[in-house]
């Protein structure tokens, strides 16, 4: 078991303004799965993803990642977990502005104490695997949306994470580019055994996943493994 959630809740705000976005999630995910999380807008998909990715903390319940009890970790320990095991892909890319492709992809490696050469080689390999070897020196402003998302994917996989989290990775992209990105994620899942957990609205996109979890009003509505 890679991920195990038990009665996980998340409440935003306090008092009258409190809003329970997750109301008791039980979820198990195995190593190597490709999971799509679906649901209406406001159902709590992003909230769940952010907690799974250790970007946010749950209000109650337990979250085990491998044999780590995540809610007991300090902020620094969660950083270290993210650094070594987790990769993120955001809808809005979240690349550093005015920063070239290579430099963006190198950033996670800066916190790993690698030598300059190792950093550069790993970054180049990751960039090559997303097919952007000809855009090494371009900054995000000089790249298309699909290319920016591929830089973000290269940045996410450069540390060789065991799990990749993607919150609507194709939400800002057109159909053709969406297919490209999904092929890339499918390949990473199949070839490298990276567990991929992805939020999406679109059935076409979810069709790439092997398992679809539907969320409604902060609860799991259905959980199907595609045949």
């Amino acid at each position: 078991m890679l991920i195990q959630l038990r009665q996980l809740t998340k409440t935003y705000g306090t008092g009258d303004a409190a809003f329970q976005a997750l109301r008791g999630i039980d979820l198990d995910i195995n190593r190597g799965e490709f999971v799509a999380i679906m649901g209406h807008s406001g159902s709590g998909k992003s909230t769940l993803m952010n907690i799974l990715g250790c970007l946010d903390t749950p209000t109650s319940g337990t979250y085990r990642y491998e044999d780590i009890t995540v809610e007991r970790l300090t902020a620094d320990q969660r950083s270290i977990l993210r650094r070594h095991a987790l990769g993120f892909i955001f809808q809005g890319f979240n690349l550093l502005a005015r920063t070239s492709t290579v430099e963006n992809v190198e950033i996670p490696l800066l916190y790993r104490g690698l030598s300059r050469r190792e950093r550069h080689e790993k970054a180049l390999a990751a960039i090559a695997s997303v097919g952007l070897a000809d855009k090494l020196r371009n900054t995000p402003a000089e790249l298309s949306g699909g290319q920016q998302q591929r830089v973000a994917i290269a940045r996410a996989i450069v540390t060789e994470p065991s799990t990749l989290f993607a919150d609507e990775p194709t939400g800002n992209l057109d159909t053709a580019t969406t297919i490209e990105i999904m092929r890339l994620l499918t390949r990473l899942n199949a070839e490298r055994g990276i567990t991929v957990i992805m939020v999406t609205h679109e059935d076409d996109v979810a069709a790439h996943a092997k398992r679809i979890v539907r969320i409604k009003d902060g609860l799991i509505e259905s959980d199907n493994i595609r045949s």
Binding site: S79, F88, P108
Partner: peptide, 19 residues
């Protein structure tokens, strides 16, 4: 704003607050 987002990005990809 820009710098706060930069910090968010760095934290998300594994930097510790102190770094």
């Amino acid at each position: 704003t820009e710098r706060t987002r930069e910090i968010g990005i760095r934290l998300a990809i594994g930097a510790r607050a102190r770094e």
